[in-house]
Simulated scan of single mutants.
Amino acid sequence: MKINPIIPWQGGKRRLVKELTKNIPEHKCYVELFTGGGALFFMREIASKVEVINDIDGELVNLYRVVQNHLEEFVKQFKWALVSRQMFDWLKNADTSLMTDIQRATRFYYLQQLAFGANTTSRSFGTATTTKPINLLRIEEQLSEAHLRLSGVTVEHLSWDKCFEKYDRPHTFFYADPPYWKLSGYGMEFGLDQYQKLADLMSSCDGKVMLSINDHPDIREIYKAFNIQQTELAYIIGRKVESRGKKSELIITNY
């Protein structure tokens, strides 16, 4: 069942889904190590027998679990909500320590829908002259398919390597979409040693692994032993001129 991701996400792979899908091998267990917005998970035509989505971001994981299990109560939280800069700032600065999981999920969803560039670390209220803001009256309609898509899916909140080790089997397919090397805005440290660790696991694991990453000499050196495909995407969002234009992306597999 092909549907749209439920939130925008910095570094999302919506435009790369067609190329990624072509490279998915036969498997029984599908695991995303860095789910983020989950473009590949949501936009694939055919679901796998067993599916696992994982992310280190606790607020994101909470959102998926709430949409999976408590959609009706989630939608009720938007009854009196408005699309406004004032509400955005209020929610951004709100103390989440006393919120329920459903309230936290509502806050995260609202902020992510309205944040400029889908940034999760330094959110600012996004404005646009060519697209409409989120329609708060149609949230249930928009998320009903996602609720069904998430049915039976295991939602994990593990470090990527712990998730890898937990699910590595000969019939497992891993999709890895880690933070891009030398690009900021992800809100987490991901040093070159982490890419090397992933390469080491790709060499020794039982399962099949597909990695999508930005094209950089350091990355090509680390993954030179694997199959590397190059593709290009046009980036148009960003305040800095150097962040726009065509960028080379790599799809790397161990099969």
Rank of each mutant, 00 (worst) to 15 (best):
N135P: 01
S151M: 08
S124T: 14
D215G: 02
I56F: 14
L114G: 01
A146I: 06
L250I: 05
R220E: 15
P170V: 12
E45I: 01
K2G: 03
L143T: 10
N135Q: 10
T96L: 09
G207H: 02
N93G: 01
T253P: 06
Y195T: 05
Y110D: 02
D57E: 13
L183V: 15
I24N: 07
R138A: 14
T100N: 09
N254F: 02
A115P: 08
G191A: 08
K166P: 06
E140R: 15
R149V: 10
K79Y: 12
I219S: 04
T120K: 06
K197Y: 05
T172G: 09
N135W: 03
Q10K: 06
Y180Q: 01
R244M: 08
R244K: 15
S212F: 13
G245I: 09
R123Q: 14
L60M: 11
S212T: 15
I213T: 15
N214W: 01
A47I: 05
K13T: 06
R44N: 07
D218E: 15
E19Y: 13
G11M: 03
L136M: 09
K247P: 03
Y255A: 10
T130E: 01
G58F: 12
S248L: 07
Y180I: 02
L198I: 06
A115W: 00
A199W: 12
K182H: 14
E32C: 05
M43D: 04
W181E: 04
D101Y: 04
L211G: 00
S243K: 06
L158K: 12
E140L: 06
M43R: 13
Q113S: 13
D89V: 07
L98G: 03
I56D: 07
L33P: 07
G207A: 05
A176Y: 10
P5K: 10
D177A: 14
N135F: 03
H216D: 15
N54K: 06
R244H: 07
N135A: 13
Y223E: 04
A105Y: 01
M210G: 15
D95K: 10
D193T: 11
A199I: 12
P179I: 08
V66Y: 04
F125N: 00
A47Q: 10
N54W: 08
Y64W: 13
E32P: 02
L98F: 08
L183D: 02
L71K: 04
D161C: 08
E249G: 07
R44S: 01
